[in-house]
Amino acid sequence: MIAYLVRRILYAIPILIGVNLLTFALFFVVNTPDDMARMQLGIKRVTPEAIDRWKQQRGYDKPLFLNTGTGSAGTFTDTIFWQKSASMFVFDFGYSDDGRSISREIATRMGPSLAIALPTFLIGLVVYVSFALLMTLFRATALDLAGVALCVLLMSISGLFYIIGGQFLVSKLWHLVPISGYAGGADSLKFVVLPILIGVVGGIGSSSRWYRTIFLDEIGKDYVRTARAKGLSELRVLFTHVLKNALIPILTGVVVVIPLLFMGSLLTESFFGIPGLGSYTIDAINAQDFSVVRAMVFLGSVLYIAGLILTDVSYTVVDPRVRLR
């Protein structure tokens, strides 16, 4: 187990280097720092001096990958790639274009993001699994058919519609909660209720349908027949035997996203004006702030890899057959 984890974590390093190389190539090779400076400064103020100053301020005045001008170690280290990438591995993300520390922003924005994402995830999981179980229990009846039809309908609706429609209905028409905004502490409840509700509803279609197929797959297996042959009731069969086995693919499918919950949701946060990491990302994209986008990309891949490792660990918890070696 320990050896396995160590191996997985070691494997994460080349992956993260790959991620960095890729984003670096996207941002700096396709678009030279000069291009960026020109764009940032605006058409009017572009002069060679202004560009140089802009680059120097941000440390973009070095060669990209190889610096032949300096000594032995500096050949690799005194380059934009090294300077901008190496520090990320110790989670030092530098400063955004407006001069704020990205690390601090991330730390303060994680809270609101989690306040939305975590309840959405947990409530969602319970709702989707229950709905799927219900459909499975009434499989091959009109109820099941209606449930599946509802799922297909719900998953055919754009996520934007859930948000806009929900805001319009709940906040504008019924005045139940504020349209958008966020506050810390107990006040946050009225701000997070609607986003969570919308998040849960928006996922019912695809998730419940997927879980239903998992349940149906399990129900066709031989051990279920054995359980019935023992004289167990259909409900007992479903809840003790099928659920336990179906949880393996379900859990391992969802565990991978748990670390990513920290990243928040782009759409929800920006629509509801929640100062989380999702809206931070969107703002950075719109402002074309590459430092922030790169930081978020790196953070996202670290969390994703953590999710993968967590998935493997969760296998050992829910499935006695799995031993990591």
Partner: peptide, 25 residues
């Protein structure tokens, strides 16, 4: 390795980054 690298980047961010670059170009 290639697809783990690609899929470990949050897709919206990857798309956003690529589109931004394309836009500038």
């Amino acid at each position: 390795y290639v697809y783990t690298v690609l899929s470990s980047i949050p897709s919206v961010l990857l798309i956003a980054a690529a589109v931004l670059i394309m836009q500038v170009t």
